[in-house]
Design a binder for these strands. Structure first.
Length: 867
RNA sequence: GGGCGAGUAGCUCAGUUGGUUAGAGCGCCUGCCUUACACGCAGGAAGUCGGGGGUUCGAGUCCCUCCUCGCCCACCA
């Protein structure tokens, strides 16, 4: 231990961080030991953060909260498996790379070795020119370059924060291992019959030109208008009114429908309607799905306006008239069977227009006289009614989703809703109500999981398709990879039994051009961590995991898909506990994000207040509770670390050796501390680190430093038989308190531990020291007076009040001190009166009883003497 | 439209199964250089617990209802 005189005047967090981080890493303090039994291990399915290149305090919040639990479990003697992953796979990375290098991926270009290394971050100058186009392979190399940089930045932040991650367990969702596991997952689901391909219309983002899954869809309120259009009834001059918000889909109209009990339209069922402008004859059928109250009660069925259109199209076996193409522009359509000779002409002016322009154009056309199916009137009836309505968007997209028939791979989930719901009910959710989010999402599942994406930077779907003798791709002829060759990229590798030059040739093959939904891979995070079938022993050791910490907005994706995968692959739950963290709100109570976020980065907060203080802030919010960012809490955290430093200095300054704990006050203090240990331990067991911290903090400050230390100060330095009792109690108290604080404040506690306890206990690090328990107090006799601490604090407070009101210093001597207490409290106080007299700087004290006072109340009188 | 969470001192938050004058920290006020700490210490002021009903000897806590905020899910012709 350093000599106490040599300790700095104040705690320097930066110096401590510089000292301990390297030691923790080099000494493997947080290493997981695969040889330890499963029962003695504790596994964490850490969320892999999206490496975005931008760090804000929201990132430190939830990750630090997980660390509290990891550190507690480790001190409980558990062999903690605490990995860290990076979610670098996927669209955010693609976009970031496009901007960063001002580059676009063009899969038709050939790979240029060495090209990717030559790229430099785009300057404002180069950005103004056209983007450079590169091959898919080069683009992926650029993605890897950027994510590697970003991961370094995150890793630096995590280590500075003191996350007790075992960095040997680092993983990335784009790594070879992760791609291997994801492709194995696909084959296993394939063999079990859980995946299928389909060309049914799927939700499609026209901006990114990819299919998206229900989980990635969000509603946004956007302005629109309701148009009333006149349709004809074939063989009559009758007109019927249809209301629609999407008039540009009139050319894609394949039917009209109304509710079977709607008297207004009952006579039309089975008849044929005629569309305005294009004169196409379409059937009119009845459907329970129609809401009589909406619009005119008569619905235009198009291919495809929304999910209900898709259902009607399937049920009624309607033809497909796909007006909207993959890029969101209207595409050519034939008008065979039209009752109007000018239908194709009318439509030709719409082809190639983007949806919005097509809508404006067609509305103009519908205003023209004669656009109605019969007579000379315009088809548009009245003026459009503007409205604000909810429209589905891809969460990362800018244009409303369209339904477009494309070939996609799906995981069958709809038929397993009930099983998925019951899996969710078997999990323990913290906070409990978050389980409802999982449930309501699962109950409302509408589609199977579309897992294919028309993107580049992701895990390739590991299949090839046969090409027939005529050069046509046969998607039913699926060619799989040799399992030993995984992971594969079918766009560059040749399948088993083929040579590379057979790609695209008659009787040859083509690779699936798509990649998996990123959730397809990240839902395998437990298996990626264990190695799954590649390392069955390790898998058995860890799976199911003890905890999955994660944010609440990804319950429907990450949590849901991970539960689904574990069920489909192994008929198991992936974990026992789900811990849901809250959000960090900015001071205006909005979710903290790049645009509204705080200007200071987490690194700067650490610079200013220290890592322990930042962690203290994260510990002040319970799981699932959103918290406003408050710099004040950082200040308080820093003060706590400083106070610990100084209190410890005081304890170790006391001369003389420790001895048996013989004094009532010392025993009572340790008795209270033992109760605190029980409360804190129970709190950590239910993942309530915030309660454990606030109880410990309040005990430390109120009982330990403000009162106990003041009471024994004098006795400790007296050098008599009672001194060693005080010193022992101080040292034991400090040791226990340090360990209770260690999960939240790893730096200051490690620092103090190293002075003496490291050598005395043999625990090289406080973070490997045993969590406090009854064992710590086994040599201490229990106090006879349960309320002793309460009473003695009340007495000391009454003396302080006397001095404070007299506006004199707390060390002002007092003569003729009289302490008035409840009769029951008198003998209690009498047993420790010497310490009270000393702390009061009195020359003695007389106890007076008054049964009018409460059992823990005291009143002091006496003469203050000028110092 | 259905559901979940929140609404407690100027601010940030605790208030476990209903039980005596509702708590903490920050801020504020009044003091104190006290040999661990002035990044400290002591004392103090400050709340009709979102509104309204009800149950109860007793309600911040239970029930009903309404209001505000946030979120989840759904509807989206």
């Amino acid at each position: 231990m350093p000599a106490i005189e040599d300790l700095p005047k104040n705690f320097d967090p930066a110096a401590a961080e510089k000292r301990w981080v390297p030691e923790w890493l080099s000494e493997g303090r947080y290493h997981y030991d695969p040889a330890v039994s499963r029962e003695r291990s504790f596994s964490i399915d850490t969320p892999p953060p999206t490496v975005s290149g931008y760090l804000h305090v929201g990132h430190v919040f939830s990750y630090t909260q997980t660390d509290f639990i990891a550190r507690y479990q480790r001190m409980r003697g558990k062999n903690v498996f605490y990995p860290m992953g990076w979610d670098d796979n996927g669209l955010p990375t693609e976009r970031r790379v496009q901007n960063y290098f001002h580059v676009r991926c063009d899969p038709s270009l050939p790979y240029e070795p060495g090209l990717s290394e030559k790229f430099e971050p785009a300057s404002s100058k180069t950005r103004s020119g056209p983007a450079k186009h590169v091959s898919r392979q080069n683009f992926i190399e650029l993605c890897n370059r950027v994510t590697t940089q970003d991961e370094e930045a995150f890793k630096e932040l995590w280590t500075r924060l003191g996350l007790s991650v075992d960095w040997r367990q680092e993983y990335a969702t784009i790594s070879e291992h992760s791609r291997h596991i994801a492709q194995l997952s696909f084959y296993d689901l394939f063999d079990k019959g859980h995946v299928y391909q389909s060309t049914a219309p799927m939700m499609w983002d026209t901006g990114f030109q990819t299919a998206v899954a229900q989980a990635e869809v969000e509603d946004r309120m956007i302005p629109g208008a309701m148009y009333r259009l006149a349709f004809g009834v074939k063989g009559t001059n009758d007109l019927v009114q249809v209301a629609t918000t999407r008039p540009e889909l009139v050319p894609a109209c394949v039917a009209l429908t109304a509710h079977p009990e709607d008297d207004r339209y009952a006579h039309l069922f089975g008849k044929t309607a005629v569309t305005p402008l294009f004169g196409m004859p379409v059937p009119i059928f009845s459907s329970e799905k129609v809401d009589k109250e909406k619009g005119t009660g008569l619905v235009m069925v198009c291919t495809f306006g929304d999910a209900t259109d898709v259902e009607w199209w399937q049920e009624e076996k309607l033809p497909t008239r796909q007006a909207i193409g993959r890029s969101g522009r209207l595409q050519p359509l034939s008008f065979d069977g039209s009752l109007r000779t000018d239908a194709a002409d009318q439509y030709s002016s719409l082809v190639e227009l983007p949806i919005r322009k097509a809508r404006a154009r067609i509305v103009d056309m519908l205003r023209e006289p004669g656009s109605a199916p019969s007579g000379t009137a315009p088809a548009l009836i009245g003026e459009p009614e503007t409205l604000e309505h909810a429209v589905k968007f891809y969460e990362k997209g800018e244009d409303p989703l369209e339904f477009i028939p494309t070939r996609q791979w799906f995981v069958r989930l709809l038929d397993k809703k009930n099983q998925l719901i019951s899996q969710g009910e078997k999990l323990s959710w913290t906070p409990e109500f978050m389980g409802l989010r999982y449930k309501s999402w699962t109950e409302n599942l509408q589609f199977d999981w579309c897992v294919s994406r028309q993107r580049y930077f992701g895990v390739a779907i590991p299949v090839w398709y046969g090409v027939d003798a005529d050069g046509r791709i046969d998607h039913s002829k699926i060619i799989r990879a040799d399992l030993k060759k995984l992971p594969v990229d079918p766009t560059s590798d040749a399948p088993p039994g083929y040579t590379p030059d057979q790609r695209g040739q008659p009787n040859g093959f083509v690779g699936d051009p798509d990649v998996f939904d990123t959730w397809f891979t990240s839902s395998m995070s437990p298996q990626i961590n264990t190695g799954w079938v590649l390392n069955p022993d390790h898998h058995r050791q860890l799976f199911p995991f003890n905890v999955r910490p994660q944010a609440h907005e990804i319950i429907r994706t990450w949590a849901f898909y991970t539960v689904a995968k574990a069920m489909l692959h192994e008929n198991s739950l992936p974990w026992e506990n789900v811990l849901i963290s809250g959000w960090v709100l900015d001071p205006n109570r909005k979710k903290m994000s790049k645009s509204v976020g705080n200007v200071m980065t987490p690194g700067e907060w650490i610079d200013k207040y220290g890592a322990d203080a930042v962690r203290y802030w994260a510990a002040s919010a319970r799981l699932g509770v959103d918290t406003a960012f408050d710099e004040n809490v950082l200040k308080v955290g820093k003060r706590l670390a400083t106070k610990l430093f100084n209190a410890a200095k005081f304890v170790y300054q006391q001369p003389g050796g420790a001895g048996e704990i013989t004094e009532e006050l010392d025993r009572a203090f340790l008795g209270e501390l033992a109760q605190l240990v029980e409360r804190a331990t129970a709190a950590y067991e239910r993942f309530d680190y915030a309660f454990a911290l606030s109880e410990t903090e309040s005990f430390f400050w109120t009982v330990f430093t403000d009162n106990y230390i003041e009471l024994v100060k004098d006795r400790a330095k007296r050098g008599d038989a009672t001194s060693s009792s005080a010193i022992s109690a101080l040292q034991l108290g400090l040791s226990v308190l340090l360990r209770l604080f260690a999960p939240v404040l790893p730096f200051i506690t490690e620092e103090i531990w190293s002075w003496r306890l490291r050598g005395e206990t043999g625990s090289e690090s406080i973070h490997r020291a045993p969590w406090p328990s009854r064992e710590d107090f086994s040599d201490v006799e229990a106090s006879k007076n349960e309320r002793l601490i309460e009473v003695v604090i009340a007495a000391l407070t009454s003396v302080r009040k006397l001095k404070s009101e007299a506006k004199v210093s707390m060390i002002a001597p007092i003569e003729g001190l009289e302490l008035v207490v409840h009769p029951d409290a008198a003998p209690v106080l009498d047993s420790v009166l010497g310490d009270v007299v000393a702390a009061a700087r009195a020359n003695g004290a007389k106890l007076i009883t008054d049964s009018g006072l409460g059992p823990a109340e005291a009143r002091a009188t006496g003469r203050l003497v000028a110092a």
